[in-house]
Design a protein around this nucleic acid. Sequence first.
DNA 1: AGAAGTGTTGTTTC
DNA 2: TGAAACAACACTTC
Length: 262
Amino acid sequence: MPELPDVEGYRRVLASCAEGRRVERVEVSDAGVLRGVTPQRLRRELTGHRFGAPERHGKWLIARTDGPTVLLHFGMTGDLLCRPHDEPPHPHDRVTLALDDGHDLRYRDQRKLQGLWLAATEADMDRILGDQGPDALSVSRAELDRLLAGRRGRVKATLTDQSVVAGLGNLLGDEILWRAGIHPARPTAGLSAEERARLEREMRGVLRTSVRAGHVPTGPSWLTGRRDDPDPHCPRCGGPLRRTRMAGRTTAWCPRCQPDGS
DNA sequence: AGAAGTGTTGTTTC
DNA sequence: TGAAACAACACTTC
């Protein structure tokens, strides 16, 4: 599931594959991933333009060119690949940008929950991205304190709210809370300064390691690696993990390591 | 073999 | 305000 670390990986793919390259051809094999733009307009406005340095904000990939900017969101199953022209297409390749050096940039996505947008101006981009909090990688201790202040909901919902902090999804949220020893259903407003400090420290640590790996690691010492086991146990204390639904998503936590505060 | 589960959004409802 | 429920999507698992 693409979260910040995965999208950072796609940003690197985009940088190494396309930066400085010209778009020779635009192939839309499934317009279901195009948002607010027709295949014709995408082809017309993008062909001939050269990619600049790509950016990322939260889970959004920002592909600037010397013309319009392409905005990509990967939903649950999106992927971005750099492949030679002659490599056979994958059934889930929805959009292919043929570049002037013999490579394709391919947006591959099974489920088409999100897709590609085209922004002609900065105002377009702001409208498409909506209300985004600061990127999670750039959030300092003091800033996280400010972001959490005054929040009424549960800490899990707050952490994964893109308008509070951009980039944390379901897996990262659970992983960070588990490492910080904080129960996901705790009210954000009830966290102590010490707990907020742990949250901030674990957020940095988890992000640093995950960004390096290009995804949330699934090793034996990670909650992410255990949470989908048939009978999941806590990598830290060995006790059974709990799984419930919170804010519409499966939430995993360790009742021993993450006291509910009651 | 049909239903539930999967996590990302935005929207709707309470 | 928060949060739950739902839709959208395609595929896997029960």
